[in-house]
Design a protein around this nucleic acid. Structure first.
Lengths: 218, 218, 218, 218
DNA sequence: CATGAATGAGGTTTCATTCAT
DNA sequence: GATGAATGAAACCTCATTCAT
């Protein structure tokens, strides 16, 4: 008479932490920090609620852990592109495209970042890890811009930080505001054709911004 | 029974509703929908909590009322610019600049819109009023683009809706993400010099996107 | 078919507060601050738990309210004795006797004070009200001592504050430690004969302390 | 396999028990029984929490172990004074002084005893060990009183048990209530001068109580 | 029209204790 | 003998909302 234990006792600290972190990411991204419920995170993770506090201290620290992993993930994906080794024009195209698809496939990134901004980044404030990751990223983009300027393909003097922001903005905003967008524009922002058109529009926008001779953009 | 007829007298009821709406806007924009507290709204408005329910039904309906007014306000400000009567190139410049300054001076707009998107626009879904306002806006931008294309200043075939989105995006994203931005970039996004540089960067971005000969952009 | 409402809705703010305060005094005195349960206080008071927070903020503030009332009560009872108008020797006798009987009839006073001391008086620290009450009390005892010294009945130079403390101590300690006392002495400290003997012992102790000719003490 | 035979080697088990007991005494005396946390005891002892349950069963039994040791300690210190061999007058003086200094140097005794009384001595009830210790103590004091009465220095018929209680009371109460004392009297009970004055006051009180000719007290 | 009093449900967190190795 | 992982129960407190006047 085999018995199916109602909840598998893991006895695996690392796995439990990962399971909690993953469930927390889902919950926080769906409801934001304030709307997220620790109870639901425990349910999603199928672990005892108490364990969340055992490993992460409290809701705030759990949220921070989620944020840190979120930023680490996107930067890791970026680095896997090896944009440094690419032709500058192609590198910028790839970056716009990558950013767009990353946001599309990781909607949790958008809601988490928005939620953290609503709270004036109080979890992330002073955090060293995410800052180092970001600085490496901006430096890499700056390298691309300089190489492109050297070949004459790019304009000179483009600010790398603001370019990074704009590349993010044109994708992030479109997807972040897709629901109010649907309500006020009256059509679905995530139709296949709409998505394709938006990516093309963003590529145009960014390439025209960096190229010396934008007519070659499209 | 003295009455002061010269000033348009608000009845107490109307006044209470306005006071509540204003307090609710502050609270919702500061904490988001989930983080907002009905108690605090009553405190801010210096009225009895029960009145909120009397006039607005519940928290959801109050949030919707705030959103409707928020969208009405920004569209009213836009219309006051009379971009229709302007030279197309100047009109687009003005629109980028206006949008930027409006977000800067109305930070509540940003957090309210983000909060509504977190909730998948469930308050705004199917709302006719905001949709009509938005359509008028896109149509006006389309008019500008057509006039600019006719004079040869603008490229042809630019999608008005996506342009509207991009004009919003490059300002909205920068300000919406100012707190995580400060945390990960390590500097204050709202320094006077940073704000000025960003506006200039956005003007460049948009003008290069629409003009046929972008070298005339700056 | 008459229905007996499960909980009477009071709609009487003052009464509700008094009921809560009284229930809280019982609970805190029985279990101490840490052992007391807000839930049980609500049950004792037969009110909704939420109302406790509505009127008193939190457990700490409720405890402070209980303490303040406790000190006010004992001082009020003391003042009702009108010791000022009494013969000094009789006044001290009365004070010892009153203190003893007050502790006996108000065991909650003892546990509340002990509990507050365990917490290093963090609720009472800096509290003006109890301090004023105490100062009036010490001043009154000082008056008695001076009058007694003037008539030659009392020794001179007795410190009023230390006398107050000792009058309290010999009663308070006996009753406060009655349970460990029973365990280690092996007899019931609250037997009628034991109580009478203790009061007499305390009268002896204090009168011998203050009188110039103690042989007249008993 | 080096062994250091000169120093009495504690087995790990004994050592762990002592470490736990010591940590538990600190924790219980600081927070009382209800406020004490098993987790913190484990932290203080720098051992695994499970060991506490292994050696002591549960929180209640651990508290009892602490109490037993506490009473054993004070009685052991008393016996080291050898009051039996002393002049009766000097013996009582020494006892008052010893008791005072013991409480001063062992504040944990006070809070532990208070905490146990709050719980109506349910841990100590029926405990043989502490009772035997106490009876030996009272008997010793009775011996002193009889010797003093025989020399004519002391009054006759003084109840030894009540004298023991009073000697304890005048010191214990002052120190136990030092925090509320500070709050309501408005000065620090533990100032050097205040402590010295209190000891002198207590010596006066007790000597006047026992001597036939109290004018020789001070 | 307005208000202070009241509430059930549910929020985060803490606790003593036990399990599995 | 020793330990990190895990847990059910219950703690304090908060929330949107309704009641009674």
């Amino acid at each position: 008479m085999a018995v199916t234990p109602s909840a598998p006792r893991l006895r695996d600290a690392d796995k439990s932490q990962l399971v909690i972190l993953s469930a927390a990411m889902d919950e926080f991204s769906q409801y934001g920090y304030a709307g997220a419920r620790v109870d639901r995170i425990a349910e999603r993770a199928e672990i005892n609620k108490r364990l969340i506090y055992y490993y992460f201290g409290n809701k705030d620290e759990l949220f921070l852990a989620v944020l840190e992993r979120t930023y680490a993930d996107i930067r890791a994906a970026e680095q896997a592109l090896h944009l440094d080794a690419m032709d500058p024009v192609e590198a910028i195209r790839q970056l716009v495209s990558f950013t767009w698809h990353y946001y599309l496939e990781h909607p949790e990134f958008i809601t988490l970042v928005n939620s953290e901004n609503l709270h004036e980044a109080r979890h992330l404030a002073g955090n060293e890890r995410v800052r180092e990751l970001q600085q490496a990223y901006v430096k890499m983009v700056q390298g691309i811009l300089e190489r492109g300027a050297a070949t004459g393909a790019f304009r000179k003097g483009i600010d790398a930080a603001n370019l990074c922001i704009t590349i993010a903005a044109v994708g992030f905003y479109y997807l972040s505001n897709q629901h109010t967008g649907r309500a006020i524009f009256g059509h679905d922002f995530t139709r296949k054709s709409a998505l394709a058109a938006r990516l093309q529009f963003n590529l145009d926008t960014v390439m025209r911004l960096v190229l010396r001779h934008p007519e070659q953009a499209s």
